[in-house]
Amino acid sequence: MTPASDDPNAERKAWMRVLARASAGDMRALLADCPALPPHIRLRGPEVGLVMARGRIGGGGGAFNLGEIAVTRCTVRSEAGQVGHATIARRDDEAAELAARIDAALQDPARHDAMAARVITPLAAAQEKRRQDAARRAAATQVQFFTMATMRS
């Protein structure tokens, strides 16, 4: 899952991963602290459609079709000239369009640093905290087998 360092798209993939998991409300709130996003035109969408999720036989073998996921995709071009894209695994036109606009802004050298610091970093931190909370809850349910140790002593 971790992008290889020689992947030219690694940085963009990393912020797209964060944007795909962000709610429209959270993105709007963080954008309030940034210079306004440039005007944009919609090249496609936002539109809802289906992605067929695939699994692997036995977990690691040949692919099979598991079932579909409802997704929203959006492609925009900002006035500054960048083309931004988002596909998110839920039905939410506003979130997909915002994510695409932020993706475009992050590709704009004049806007990248502010966007990365004020939008992506806090979103990523909140998502990581959510994952860590779940991982700690899971760890609390780990079975500690003590019978053998007790019998040996």
Partner: peptide, 10 residues
């Protein structure tokens, strides 16, 4: 709904 494509196997 339109079909956009297939995922990479999870």
């Amino acid at each position: 709904l339109p079909r956009f494509g297939y995922s990479t196997p999870v």
